[in-house]
Simulated assay, not measured.
Amino acid sequence: MILPTRTGRDAHTPRPLTVKRGVNPHASGSAHLCLGRTEILATVSVEDKPAPHMRGKKEGWLTAEYAMLPRATTDRQARERNLQNGRRHEIQRLLGRALRASIDLKHFRNQTLYVDCDVLVADGGTRVASVLAGYAALHDFADRLIQTGRLSEWPLRHAVGAVSVGLVGEELRVDLDYAEDKVARADLNVVATDAGLVLEAQGGAEDGPIAPEEYIRLLMTGVEAVGGLLRDLHRQV
């Protein structure tokens, strides 16, 4: 098998990240994020109504939704109308867990925050790019609340990001594009904070088992890479 090569970055360097916040004038917060050729639009909406399971609680709730536009990929995909789609449901749960960890929901009692992440262009890593885009949109949302005086305390408690890491042949690579993801013999999606705390790791071996040391190396490399991506993101938002 001929393994894909990288141009312009080494094995431990993520693809270029660019982010612009405040791109949707109708949303309470928004961000357009590019990670290489993968593009995500994330928006934040607020509903003055508690989630059913949060009625009477002292905190609000955050939920996330994920969708891929029909021409996000090389071939047109049917528009996702089935909310029970397994992959979509799994990604939405990941996004919700990650983004709830980033925000102190005590500021939003009896409210529900919706973070919508739409994939405009897919070239691998759409779920990790959606975590980054969702966090950038929440950052925009939080900044608006402070600037308008609706909150006096910064509501974000953790900077949260994600990255993919994988073994392509014998080489550990950070932030796999689609061509690399297809041939990786093991891969993880690592969700972490800028302080190096792990929130989640999804994935595993694709071509037979790997040694525990390799798994740990994937995880630790991912955590370090998330820190770098978040520093880059914060310089832009």
Results as ranks from 00 to 15, higher is better:
P4R: 11
R6H: 05
T7L: 08
G8R: 03
T13N: 14
P14F: 12
P16W: 08
K20G: 07
K20C: 09
G22M: 09
V23W: 05
N24A: 11
N24D: 13
H26M: 08
A27P: 01
S30K: 02
L35K: 05
R37P: 05
R37M: 12
I40E: 04
A42Y: 00
T43A: 13
V46W: 02
A51M: 11
P52C: 10
H53Y: 11
G56L: 05
G56F: 01
K57I: 01
K57R: 00
K58S: 10
E59I: 12
A64P: 02
Y66N: 07
M68V: 15
A72K: 00
Q77F: 06
A78G: 06
R79S: 14
E80N: 15
E80P: 10
L83V: 12
R87L: 08
R93Q: 12
L94P: 08
L95H: 04
L95P: 01
L99E: 03
R100M: 06
D104R: 04
H107K: 08
H107Q: 12
F108M: 04
F108W: 06
Q111W: 02
Y114D: 12
V115G: 07
D116G: 07
D116R: 02
D116N: 11
C117D: 01
L120I: 13
V121Q: 06
G124E: 04
G124H: 04
G125D: 14
V128Y: 02
V128D: 01
A129C: 08
D140C: 03
R144L: 12
I146E: 15
I146Q: 15
I146P: 10
R150S: 13
R150V: 07
L156T: 01
R157E: 09
R157T: 09
A159L: 08
V165E: 05
V168H: 01
V168F: 03
V168N: 01
E170I: 07
V174W: 00
V174Y: 04
D175L: 09
L176C: 07
L176P: 01
Y178V: 13
A179S: 13
E180H: 07
E180G: 02
K182Q: 10
A184Q: 05
R185P: 01
R185C: 04
A186C: 09
D187G: 10
V191P: 05
A192F: 03
T193V: 10
A195I: 04
L197A: 14
L197Y: 10
V198D: 00
L199S: 03
Q202A: 10
G203F: 06
D207W: 03
I210P: 00
A211R: 12
A211W: 07
E214L: 04
Y215L: 13
R217M: 09
R217D: 13
L219W: 09
V223T: 08
E224D: 14
A225G: 11
A225D: 05
G228D: 07
L229C: 14
R231M: 01
D232W: 06
L233V: 14
H234R: 15
H234K: 15
R235T: 10
Q236C: 01
V237G: 13
